[in-house]
Design a protein around this nucleic acid. Structure first.
Length: 532
DNA sequence: GTAGGGTTAG
C-alpha cells in the first residue's frame, strides 16, 4: 500500500508541477520571451504534457515563427484536437488557406475528430479566398459528424454562404443555430445588406433582442453600400454612443459618393464631439481632402495626425502622399514618399500616379524603375498610371512598350482601364485609326470610359465620323451622359455641319445633357478649418 | 489550461 500511496503522491506532485510548468511557459510567452519558454520546455521532458507542446506551438505562431511551430508539431509524441486547432489557427492568422486546407485533410486522415473550433477556424480562413467554395461541403461535414452549430461555427458558416452568394444557405444556417447571441444577428444583417435586401436587414435589426456597436456599424455601412446615404445618416444620428468605427464609416460614405465637403464637415463635428479619430478616420479624411483638392484642410489634418501622436505607418503616409499629389503639391508628396521606410506596392502606385496626373511621365517612369529595382512587383494599377502618364506626356511609343511589357514581362491581363488609357494616348496624339483598331481588337465590349476617351479625342481632332460612333457607343450603355452633347456640338461646329441634318439633335435632347460641373483647385472661402 | 465568430483605411 505505501508504494501505491507514494505513487499517488508522486503523480500529484508531478501533475502539480506540470501545471506550474505550463503556467510559467505561458507567462513567458505572454511577455514575448519565447526563448525562455522554449528553454524551460526543453529542460522539463518529464513534466511537459500535450498542453505544454500546444502552448509553445501557439507561442511560435504568435510571433510568426511558423517553421519552428511546424517542426515542433511534427515531432510531437501525442497530439490532441487542440494541437490541430492551434496549427489551423496559426495558418489562418498567417493568411495561408492552403496550409489550413492541407492540415485539415491531414487531421482527418490521421483519424483525429474535428470539433466545433476546427470548423470555425477552417471556414473563417477560407473566406474571400479561392477555397470559399468548400464552405457548403464543410457545412455538410459538420452535419454528418453531428457537431452542433454553435455561434462560432454558425457565424463563420453564415459568412461563408454570403461569400458564395447563397442567400438561402445564409438563412438556413441562421435558423440552424439553436442558441444565438448578437453575432449571428449581425452577420444576418451583413448578409442581407450584401444581397441588397435593405428592408430585410432593417427588419432583422428591429427584431433582434440585443444590439452592440457592430450591429449599428454593420447596418449603417450596409445602407451606404446600397447607396442609401440618407438612411445611413439618419440611423447614424440616432446612435446614442457613436464609436470611432461608425464615425469613420459615415465619413467614408460621403467620400465614396463624392460629397467631400459633407465628409469634412462631419469630421469636424466628430472632433468637437470629443470622439478620437484613428488611422482609418485620418486616412478617410485625407481622401476627402484629396477629392476636394482641399490642401489647406489637408495640411490641418496632417498637423492633427502629428499632434495626436499617432505613429505614421505606411498606410497613413501613403494617404498623405496621395492627398498632396491630388492637391497639386507634388513636391511635398514626394518628400513624404521618400520618408516612408518600407514602401509597399500601394505607396509606389501613389507616387507614380501623382506624377502621371501632373503630366510628368519621365518622373513616373523613373519611380517605376526604382520600384522594380527595390523588388516590388507592379500590379495592374501601376500600369494604368504609367500608360496614363505616357498619354499625358505624348509618349506614344513608350506607352505602347509599357502596355505590351505588362502582358509579356509581368503576366498581367490588360483590363478595361488599360485599354481606355491606350485609346486616350492614341487619341491625344491624333492616331485615331490606331485607337479605333485597338477598340475593335479588345477581348471585351468597350465601356463608357473607353468610348469617352475616343469621343474626347474626336473632339480634339474634329473627327465627325468616329465621334458619332463613339457617341452612339456611349448612348447604348448610358442614355444620359452629360459630356456627349458638348463634344459633339464642338465637332459639328468645327466641321460647319448643321447638327439637325444628322438627326442626332433629337437623340441628344433625349440624353437630357447637362453641363458637367467644373472643378477648381482653389479652395472655396467656405472651406472648413480643423482645430484640435 | 492551449484553439474561436461580426464593423471602418492607402
Amino acid at each position: 500500500m505505501p508504494a501505491l500511496r507514494a505513487f499517488a503522491v508522486c503523480r500529484q506532485i508531478s501533475t502539480l508541477s506540470t501545471i506550474n510548468l505550463n503556467k510559467t511557459i505561458n507567462s513567458f510567452i505572454a511577455n514575448g520571451n519565447l526563448k525562455e519558454a522554449r528553454k524551460l520546455f526543453d529542460q522539463s521532458p518529464h513534466l511537459r504534457n500535450v498542453v505544454s507542446w500546444n502552448s509553445i506551438i501557439a507561442g511560435y505562431f504568435r510571433y510568426r515563427c511558423i517553421q519552428q511551430a511546424e517542426y515542433l508539431f511534427d515531432g510531437m509524441p501525442h497530439r490532441d484536437v487542440v494541437s490541430w486547432n492551434t496549427m489551423l489557427s496559426g495558418y489562418r492568422n498567417a493568411n495561408n488557406p492552403e496550409k489550413v486546407y492541407n492540415c485539415f485533410l491531414h487531421m482527418n486522415r490521421h483519424g483525429d475528430k474535428p470539433n466545433e473550433l476546427t470548423f470555425a477556424v477552417a471556414i473563417s480562413s477560407f473566406l474571400h479566398k479561392d477555397f470559399k467554395h468548400l464552405v457548403p461541403q464543410l457545412h455538410g461535414l459538420v452535419l454528418s459528424l453531428g457537431i452542433s452549430l454553435n455561434v462560432f461555427v454558425g457565424s463563420a458558416l453564415m459568412r461563408g454562404y454570403i461569400d458564395v452568394d447563397d442567400y438561402k444557405g445564409l438563412a438556413r444556417v441562421f435558423d440552424e443555430i439553436l442558441v444565438k447571441d448578437v453575432t449571428p444577428w449581425n452577420v444576418l444583417i451583413l448578409g442581407y445588406m450584401k444581397f441588397g435586401c435593405t428592408s430585410e436587414a432593417q427588419r432583422a435589426f428591429d427584431m433582434m433582442p440585443t444590439r452592440n456597436a457592430f450591429t449599428w456599424s454593420t447596418l449603417i455601412n450596409g445602407y451606404i453600400e446600397n447607396k442609401k446615404l440618407n438612411e445611413a445618416r439618419s440611423l447614424f444620428d440616432k446612435m446614442s454612443e457613436k464609436d470611432v468605427v461608425s464615425w469613420t464609416a459615415m465619413i467614408r460614405g460621403y467620400v465614396q459618393y463624392g460629397d467631400f465637403m459633407e465628409a469634412l464637415k462631419l469630421f469636424k463635428v466628430m472632433l468637437s464631439s470629443g470622439a478620437r479619430p484613428n488611422h482609418f478616420t485620418f486616412s478617410t479624411v485625407l481622401d476627402a481632402c484629396a477629392g476636394n483638392s482641399a490642401v489647406l484642410v489637408g495640411n490641418q489634418v496632417h498637423a492633427c495626425i502629428l499632434k495626436s501622436g499617432f505613429p505614421l505607418d505606411v498606410v497613413l503616409l501613403t494617404s498623405l502622399v496621395d492627398m498632396y499629389a491630388k492637391c497639386g503639391v507634388i513636391d511635398i508628396a514626394f518628400c513624404i514618399f521618400e520618408s516612408i521606410p518600407e514602401r509597399n506596392l500601394v505607396a509606389w502606385n501613389s507616387i507614380i500616379g501623382g506624377y502621371a496626373r501632373h503630366g510628368l511621365p519621365e518622373r513616373a517612369m523613373q519611380e517605376f524603375e526604382r520600384m522594380v529595382k527595390s523588388g516590388i512587383r507592379p500590379d495592374e494599377i501601376t500600369f494604368i498610371n504609367l500608360v496614363y502618364a505616357c498619354g499625358h506626356g505624348g509618349l506614344v511609343e513608350e506607352g505602347e512598350r509599357i502596355f505590351n511589357s505588362m502582358v509579356t514581362d509581368y503576366g498581367l491581363k490588360a483590363e478595361m482601364e488599360h485599354y481606355a488609357c491606350m485609346v486616350d494616348l492614341y487619341g491625344k496624339a491624333g492616331l485615331l485609326e490606331k485607337a479605333e483598331k485597338l477598340i475593335e481588337g479588345m477581348p471585351f465590349k468597350p465601356d463608357v470610359v473607353v468610348w469617352g476617351a475616343l469621343l474626347g479625342a474626336c473632339g480634339l481632332h474634329s473627327c465627325l465620323e468616329l465621334g458619332e460612333i463613339a457617341a452612339n457607343g456611349i448612348y447604348t450603355l448610358e442614355n444620359d451622359h452629360p459630356a456627349v452633347y458638348s463634344v459633339l456640338s464642338k465637332i459639328y461646329g468645327d466641321k460647319g455641319v448643321d447638327s439637325d441634318i444628322t438627326g442626332l439633335e433629337k437623340l441628344m435632347k433625349n440624353w437630357r445633357a447637362r453641363k458637367q460641373k467644373a472643378g477648381s483647385w482653389i479652395e472655396s472661402p467656405s472651406s472648413i478649418s480643423i482645430t484640435v
